[in-house]
Nucleic acid binder design. Structure first.
Lengths: 124, 124
DNA sequence: CCGTATCCTTAGAGATACTG
DNA sequence: CAGTATCTCTAAGGATACGG
């Protein structure tokens, strides 16, 4: 049994799954792997997310020690988000997921002209 | 843009996430990586899942071409589930998630005596 | 043994408006 | 710019009972 972030898990894979088991967190991590970002930059890049949801997800990721939140005392406000070491260590997982997804699409999907990888779940 | 299983995705990572983005599917895949299993065996090994939910999740995975369902015409019924090639290719992803989880727990969690890896999300 | 059929409860997330 | 505060909707999943 593992105890992390006030939850209990019986497997370390569950621990990992818990980090991004929703519609948005993996996308946020992906965009921060690229470079540190301000709130607004993230909101622009993940443009389907609402401001409220982005705020909630950033807080969750901060609480889980995946991202850092740095506030600059200035007007207008500036807040920069970056990955922690633990967050950056997620890259291999993302890479594998990317690779698997490519193979899966080749086998079962159709590809239409793309713009950019944005990582979110498909609309249900 | 990708079109798979009647959904649209703008990134192949999203495609992968969609496969196991709930509380149970990853656990089912994990148990089938070990060996093919009957319905009852899965239900015993993932003992917190309800029969109904297991049924639903198995159907979803079958529809997504991750598992095969083989029915033996006998009484009492026998149904065996196994991974497809695509399902088996998920192993590296699982392995990386396992590795990451171990590191994360070392850094932020507590470990208490364990029984066996069961993969499910922690109770919310 | 391997499921279906209902009913029910919750949490995730969208829409919208407001604030230091 | 970077958030809060409400309100609402929906779908995932649990409990329970029944069926081939």
């Amino acid at each position: 049994m593992y105890q992390v972030n006030d939850k209990e898990f019986n497997c370390s894979i569950s621990v990992t799954l818990d980090i991004f088991n929703d519609r948005w967190k993996l996308s946020i991590i992906w965009h921060l792997l690229d470079s540190d970002k301000r709130f607004k930059e993230l909101h622009n890049e993940i443009d389907e997310i609402t401001q409220k949801t982005l705020t909630v997800k950033l807080k969750e990721l901060e609480k889980k020690n995946i991202i850092n939140r740095e506030v600059f005392a200035q007007v207008p406000p500036k807040v920069v988000y970056s990955l922690t070491d633990a967050g950056r260590r997620l890259k291999p997982v993302l890479d594998d997921m990317f690779t698997w997804g490519v193979g899966y699409v080749e086998e079962f999907g159709k590809i239409t002209p793309n713009v950019q990888c944005k990582i979110k779940e498909g609309k249900k």
